[in-house]
Amino acid sequence: MTTTVPEMTSAALPAAAPARWQDYLQLLKPRVMSLVIFTAFTGLLCAGAPLNPVLAGVAILCIAVGGGASGALNMWYEADLDALMRRTRGRPLPTGRVQRGDALALGITLSLFSVMLMGLAVNLLAAALLAFTIFFYAVVYTMWLKRATPQNIVIGGLAGALPPAVGWAAASGSAPLSAWLLVAIIFFWTPPHFWALSLVTCEDYAKAGVPMMPVVRGEAATRRQIFLYSLVVAPLGLVPAFTGLGGPLYLAVAAIGGAGFLALAAKVAFPSHSPTPAASRPLLPARGREDARRLFGFSIAYLFLIFAALLVEHLAGVRPLVR
């Protein structure tokens, strides 16, 4: 790995307020953590294995803390980038409220504690998968891929996709194909989701020198890629209904949601206004942003709804369509 840890410039550090405990909580990316908890809990429940509710709670806590720890490590490493981007410049490190060393210590400590407790309280497979998730996000994605390739969020998306498998392993001690199917859905959902966001915020990424797809390959190529991945996500979302995982509610939600996802992705890929040649103007004109923003918002709702449908069916004891 050739990348070195970037140093913060003094210009990025205004007069810092004293660090409050809430600043350290912010390092754990609570909003990302909530999605991690939700998908991990769905995996845990879908496993259908009897697990003591307290141990199930400990498993979810470990996954949440492990996810938060990787968020802190990400903020530690990316403090220089965060200071350059509007979306992230208010974070505790760029504002100087928290020192970089403190963020690193928090990330490492919570990583060790979450993996250790998962191993002791639940099982070793879940602990190993959790450790791999943290490593993949903090090292493979943050330190290596993010500044190196426009495929950063495609490969790095695996870290965000793994929580259902960790939850499944926590409940059953194994990670069968059904668990990896849930992982695959999130994995293929991630590129269109993030590229829709990066179409909206590509000036920031360009300024920070992050090789996101719209910055490197241009708008038209990114829009095409979004549509291609959506062609995979929509049908893949239906598969759990035919593998004994999802029931009629899931099928309905995945079918309607998938159709909506495809329709919005098609609007992004084939805009009504004339496409901007990537080479002449790599950054998106303002009028083309609304469709990308709509797809970004819808993609969150889509993922939430299909996992919520699985959750509701398993809680309500609805039979899967196929046994």
Binding site: R20, V54, L117
Partner: peptide, 22 residues
């Protein structure tokens, strides 16, 4: 600083209770 100390203490107490219950 007082807030940070209380949060850290609460986290440690929670961890000890968790290990005991587990």
């Amino acid at each position: 600083r007082r807030g940070r100390n209380i949060a850290l203490a609460a986290g440690l107490v929670l961890f000890v209770i968790l290990v005991f219950v587990v």
